[in-house]
Amino acid sequence: MSANGWYIVSALVENKPGVLFRVTNLFRARSFNIESITVGTTEQQDLSRMTITTNSDQRTLDQLVKQLRKLIDVVDVKVLDLDKSVYRELALIKMKAIDPTTRSEILNYANIFRGNIIDIGKETITVEITGTPDKIDAFKNLVEQYGIAQLARTGVSALPRGTEL
């Protein structure tokens, strides 16, 4: 068995009820290990794009793609070439921040990571941060010391670069 790699699978699916259920049920039934899955509308009204990230070996990835293609509601499936794609995730991170030094340190880090402060309360600061999952991990690791009160990540959205389709 080959080593695991991190992959982004991009699928165009029919934009109708039940499709997400069929896809996730397939993953469960065949024990595919999914890290994140996002679904949203596309430039075409009747199609949605699902972006799936997974840590898999090559053979499992191959099966995942083929089994997805088999679903009637799945119109197209591609494994994205990470070098030729853009991919981003958004995270909202709420931290405990009462004393002024902590507050200014968090503001500083958020700045460096091009994050936005989207909420400040008496005891918390919430940062919005966009980037590759690695970048979000890095920020999270940095601010963990202050105590993360709540965290929400969207999962990855991705598109091929330039004229690649």
């Binding site: 053979r59 191959d62 099966q63 083929k66 089994q67 293609r69 088999k70």
Partner: peptide, 8 residues
């Protein structure tokens, strides 16, 4: 006939 059977 089923591509998913190849290498499964």
């Amino acid at each position: 006939i089923d591509p998913a059977e190849i290498g499964k």
